[in-house]
Computed example of a mutant assay.
Amino acid sequence: MKVNLRYFASLRETVGVGSETVDTNAATLGALRDELIARGGAHAEALGRDRVVRAALNQTMSDESAPLSEGAEVGFFPPVTGG
């Protein structure tokens, strides 16, 4: 399925893009994060399990057990973002 990713604040700077659309087999936000980490490079650095990262699913803050669906929008945030 395709999902739309958005990266905010320092995560956007590390990954190098503000948004992207990806094909995934992940069923949950946590599984999607693991897939992105497995890419290595900037994704692993930004989203690594040693980092605190918050996620929103369709503009609602969600935990990693939240189920994904076709066309979902996923936002990744550092724990504190400026205004």
Rank of each mutant, 00 (worst) to 15 (best):
V22E: 02
D50S: 15
S65L: 10
G18S: 13
V52I: 12
G41W: 05
A46H: 10
G18P: 13
L32R: 03
V74Q: 04
V52K: 13
E70S: 14
E64S: 13
S62P: 11
L5W: 02
A9P: 08
L36D: 12
V15T: 06
M61I: 15
E13N: 13
E35P: 00
K2Q: 15
V17N: 02
R6G: 02
V52D: 13
N58V: 05
G16R: 09
L32N: 07
D63W: 10
V74G: 08
V3Y: 01
A42Y: 07
V80R: 07
L11R: 02
F77Q: 04
R51W: 12
Y7E: 08
D34S: 15
S69T: 09
G16V: 08
E64H: 12
V17P: 01
L32K: 03
G82D: 05
T21N: 01
S19P: 00
G41I: 03
D34F: 00
V3F: 04
P79V: 02
A9N: 05
M61A: 09
A66C: 11
A66V: 13
R33Y: 08
L57Y: 08
E13M: 06
E64C: 06
N58L: 09
D63F: 10
E20Y: 01
N4V: 01
L11Q: 04
L32E: 09
H43G: 07
P67N: 07
P78M: 03
R39E: 14
V80E: 06
G16I: 07
R12L: 08
G71W: 01
S19R: 09
M1P: 09
E45N: 12
A44V: 00
F77P: 06
F77A: 06
S62V: 10
